[in-house]
Every structure is written in C-alpha cells, then in structure tokens.
Design a protein around this nucleic acid. Sequence first.
RNA 1: GCCGGCGUAGCUCAGCGGUUAGAGCGACGGUCUCAUAAUCCGUAGGUCGUAGGUUCGAAUCCUACCGCCGGCACCA
Length: 642
Amino acid sequence: MKYYLTTPIYYVNAAPHIGHAYTTIVADLIKRFKTMQGYRAVLTTGSDEHGVNVERAAARAGKAPAEFVAVIAREFEQQWRTLGLGIDRFMRTSDPRHHRKVAELFEACRRNGYVYKGEYRGQYCIHDNLYVSEAKPGDPCPECGRPTETVTEENYFFRLSAFEDRLLELYERQPDFILPETRRNEVISFVRQGLSDLSITRTNIKWGIPVPGEERHVFYVWFDALTTYVSAVDGEDLWPADLHLIGKEIVRFHAVYWPAFLMAAGWPLPKRIFAHGWLLFQEDKMSKSKGNIVRATPIQQVMGIDALRYFLLREIVFGQDGNFSYDALVGRYNADLANGLGNLTSRTLSMIQQYRGGRIPAPAGGVRPEIAQAAENTIRAAIAHFENFEFSRALEAIWSLLSSIDRFIVEEAPWKLARSSEPGAAERLDSALYTAAEALRVAAILLWPVIPASAERIWDQLGMEGPLEQVRLGELAWGQLPAGQAVKTPGALFPRIEPPQAIERMRELEAQETARQAALFAPKPSTAAAPATERISIEEFARIDMRVGEVRFAERVKGSDKLLHLKVDIGEPQPRTIVAGIAEAYAPESLIGRKVVIVANLQPRKLRGIESNGMIVAATPEGGKPVLVGFLEDVPAGARLS
RNA sequence: GCCGGCGUAGCUCAGCGGUUAGAGCGACGGUCUCAUAAUCCGUAGGUCGUAGGUUCGAAUCCUACCGCCGGCACCA
C-alpha cells in the first residue's frame, strides 16, 4: 500500500523560514507515521519558480530568472536536508518533465472542452498571483493590500464555472476532503457564491511554461504549480495523492481550482487536503516586511531539531494558528523533554546499570496491571490521534504515560528495594525496572514520527536491535521488551538549557542567517523596495492634477470596513466628496482639519452609492496600512503639486 | 454588511445539559535521592466575555450585546 503526500510547492521569492519548516516537518512526521503503519510513504515537495513576482525579484537581484531561481531552489533543498526531513521528490517547476506534464493537463482539459480562448481584462495582484474579480483599476489586492495592476490580454480560459455542482457534490460525498471543517465550510460557501471562469495563460510575462502551439502564452502560475504534485511522481503509480498538506492561505487553489482542473482533464483527484494554521510570532503573522521572521536552523543548532519538532507539534493545535516564542520553546524543552522524557530515560537506565549490571531484568514480580493497561490505552490513543492529525493530543497522551511511570518509580522506590533484604524485594525491583524500560520502548516507538533522532537514541540505549522505522504500529503491544539484553548509558538525551543564554545564542544565529539569506536576493544598492515601473514622460505626469486639500468632513461609509466618506477643501467653491479606503488606518475625527494630497482630475466613481471625485494619496508599506501624505511646512489648500 | 468560529485559573487549552469547573506549564511550600539542581506530594480559589431567557438543573441550549479571529463582499 502506498501513501503519497505533498507539501506545498514553495514559491521562491522568499528564502525558507520556520513557516515552511513547520509544514514540511509535519509532512515528514506523517510520512514516518504512515511508514510505521506499513505503508510505502512517499513525500513530495518542490519549488514554484515562475511568475511575474519571481521575474521581478530576479531583475532586482540583477540575475536572469533561471539563475536566480536555481539559487533559491537549492536553498530550499538544502534546508530540508539540514533539518533531516525525508523528502523523496523535490520537483522544480522549471524542470522539463514538469513542463511536459503541465502541457498534458492543459491538452486534456482542452480536449474535453473546458478551455476556450477569450480576452481577459482586469486587475491582477502580482504578489499573490491573484486575479481580483470585479476590481477596478488601481484597487488594492484583497489579500495583501498592495495595488493591483490592470491587465488586458488574450488568454485561454478555464471553464471553472462548469464545476460548481461537481465540486459541491465532491465536498458533500467526501466530507473529509478538506480538513479541518472550518476550512471546508469556507470553501463550500465560496463555491456556492458562484465561480467564474479562470484565465489560465498569460501573454504579458515570459517567465513561465509556454503553452504548446501558442508560444506567446505562458501558463498561469497556479495551473503550473499545482501540477507539480503529479509531475513529481510521473510514471510511478503514486498519483492520486493521499494527502495535500497546505497552509490555510492556499485552500482555494487546492480545494477548488485543483480538483476542477483534474476533473476537467479526467485525472484522479487527491483524497484529502489538510490546511493548517499560521505560525504567529508575537501574535502577528510572520512577514519579511515586519522583520519578525524566525528560521529553523538557528533553533536546530542550539537546541536540536527534535526540540523544534516537539515544540511545534505539542504546543500548537494542528490546524489552528499558533504562537511561536523562544520562551515557550525553551520552556517546553526543559519541562517535557529534559525533565520528562530525558530524565526518565536517564534514571531508568542508570538504575538498571547500577542494580542489575546493565541488563534488563525479567519482570519476576509481574507487571502492575494498571500500568500495562495504561500503556495499551496510550498506544491506541496515540495512534488514533496521529491518524486524525491531532498531534498535540497524541503527545499529551504519551506524556501522560511517561508521567505515570515517574510516579510509579517513586512509589516503588527501586533504590530502597535494592538495599532491602526482605523477601520479594529483588523480584519487585526486577519488575519495576522492567516496567520503566518497557514504557520507554513503547514511547520511543510512538515518538519516532515526532522526534526521530531522540527516539532512535532511546531505542539504541535500551539495546534494541533493528531500525526503529521497521517497527509496525499494528503489532505494538505492552510487554514485548526482551529481558536480558544489555543497555547503554551515554550522556543526557536532552541536556537542560539555560533560557537567557540559549535564547540569546539563537537570536545571534538568527541574525546571521537573515543576513546570509538576504545576500541571496542581493538587491542592487540603488533599487528601491518597490519594483520599478515603466518610465513616463513629464507630459504624462503633468496630466495628473495633484492638489493639497484640507479635510472638512469625515465619516465611515456604512456597510464597509475600509471606506471613509470625506469632504476635502481644495480651494474650490465646494469641498470635494472623496471616498477613500483608509478607514482601517485613520479614525474619521482624527482627519478633520488635516492637510492631505489628492488627485483631483480622476474620473468620478461611485463607491457604496457615494460618488467619489478624486483619490487621496497615501503610501502603503508591504503588508501594512495606508499612510497619508503630509507636509512638514504648512501649505494652503488648493496648491498644486508638481 | 453577509457567513462562520472563538471569548473558561498568570499562560496554553480541555470540558459542550447534571454531583464541590479540570489538565499541563509557571508560582509557592514540602519530600525522596535512582536521575539532567531532575522526580514525587501538596497549595494556588477562575462572576466559565456581559445581560437576559429555556430548564428541576447551564460554562454546556436559545436571544441580544461587547471583544477578538477567519471567509466573502468591499477597499478612486
């Protein structure tokens, strides 16, 4: 039986950070779990290398796109290797094999009548590769808030509208097609609102996969990227995927577009999509512009990869957003790994060493039934939780067993039994030591998917033979630890960590890593953050009438989150009515009397029933809120800018 | 604005109609000595967002409101 799973195909306009690592670590965990269930588990990841965004990032770095993406793709590949993740296929969208597969998908869709040629005219966000339906020129992108660009082009369209019913039927028939349920509900309501056809080729960019027979066209990046899941395992009898693991920001592409493409082509559909939440840092989404990005490798260097894996899976409820913090990371590590699992391993092996000459004794006095029972329950519960993507619960269950063993050891007090000459003391000691060791063996097996390196060390220290990954969870039961084998007692599994020093060290390494990654993008010194746009002549500029205005009136537009209704005095007899999308950044009352800059000669436009006669000029930083333009000296209303 | 979710101990959360509301972490006190200054035991008293309602009985169901989050709409 095969189990084919994928991570997203990561977009190469950013270097890998802990968010990428999170998804990929979970994928690695699931792969290991499935392996232990006896599946032939195969994991695909890769790099999404096409699109305007990359084209521009490359230009900024002064490199050809192909050269640029190769560097970043290598960076991702290297990252997964460094973190020890079991990637089986790394597919780059620039790979010729992938190109062929995309062309194949397209041909199949076209043959089945789901592709037609038409003209697209509309707004497009280059950052999110998103066409913004019903947007007007200049509207910002609903995802990121950056301005959209107007594009008019002859395109091939995908008849997405034809799939509404079939998609809804799919979600109905397979309730676990999209997990968790909250994402499923969102997708269903999105599809119910109606789907419009999707432009799947572009003529305004070159950096993409050419459409067969139409060399001016390249494929829309999502049509391109999603197909990676198939092309990565072409000819291997692995498709359809059993699981697409994704972040919640890309559910629509995976749960709507992708199945529709596949239905159109008549190709098999993936079995399940699981969208996890975001890893927040200081309660905020990590983003390059906010400078709050954390990377996995500094943590790995200071605390070990298993510490990070354990933290991510134990602290965060998989599927929900979770907070990352160094304090919580170190706290978890010390409490659960050092004081918990590590210490239990250490005390158990040490006692076997001291009291039984380093050989695991047979449980001469029998094993307490409640312990055996608790262990059996833990085995079943942990497996069920892993199966349901409830990783934090699985770990909770395992730790509850470990904790009961710590309690048991204190109750039995083997150190007293060892000194006791009472009858039965020796047998009791044997049983206590066996019980503790057996619990460790069970824990090592259950924990291998989560903290593989540490589990293997425990396995080895218990003197177990054979690779842990060949153990089958279906056969796991209490009492399988063979007595008589020699244990080893090397150093501490998880040495305690001093929080301030460790955190400081991680921050240092983080800064170095940030600098190293930044160099990969090597922005040319004089280039501004925003990509350069096309040059215009002074005459063209002169056509734009920008004036200083004073806000006389401001109120929220009813029924809108972002719009303010303003009246602005620009020296005309009547103040101008302007509707501006700045409600999230400015309270209406704070604007009264404020000097602003407006574009006075824009065509009027009705927004929410109010006719707007101009546009307020504001700067919108990446991912941030608009900031109004202002003057350091006073300028009278009506003054023209040039 | 529409739709959905959430709001429970300092923190992260569980409980989702029924006895005195729970766990882990953190904090405090104590204990043991096999162990990584670890373990173990005990303590810490939270109007279960607010206000109503249903019920013999509500954190648990219903309504309204407040706050937070998400999806959609919207953002000249």
